[in-house]
């Protein structure tokens, strides 16, 4: 399963709920305002970093770029993908669960 999260973890609890419920081995893609959850050195970073050990976590590059967030600020275990990568993940992982 592919989980997508499009809300900032500083404003909503969508990422918290996703991390609590996503089965180990499932993929999580951070998109739109969800990309703030991929940043290192924030009050949210520790739990996301911990989740990279049990899940494949991705972040959508164009949404980082739009917000002026350099890829160097992304947590080490998170992979940056483009729109093509988003499609590949959706195809490969089967069901998509959108945490809105």
């Amino acid at each position: 399963m592919l989980h997508t999260v499009n809300k900032s973890p500083f404003e909503r609890n969508a990422l918290d709920s996703c991390l609590r419920l996503a089965a180990p081995g499932s993929a999580i893609l951070l998109i739109e305002d969800g990309v703030y959850g991929a940043l290192a050195g924030t009050a949210q970073s520790a739990k996301v970093e911990a989740a990279t050990r049990t899940h494949d976590i991705y972040v959508l590059g164009p949404d980082l770029k739009a917000r002026g967030l350099e890829e160097t600020r992304v947590i080490g275990g998170i992979k940056v993908v483009d729109y093509g990568g988003f499609v590949d993940l959706a195809v490969a992982m089967g069901t998509v669960n959108s945490w809105l």
């Binding site: 900032s8 500083f10 305002d33 949404d63 739009a66 917000r67 002026g68 967030l69 350099e70």
Partner: peptide
């Protein structure tokens, strides 16, 4: 809150 991200340097939303 997340409003501080509005003035982050380097925004480039062309692809959006």
């Amino acid at each position: 809150d997340d409003g501080v991200f509005q003035i982050k340097k380097g925004h480039d939303p062309k692809e959006l």
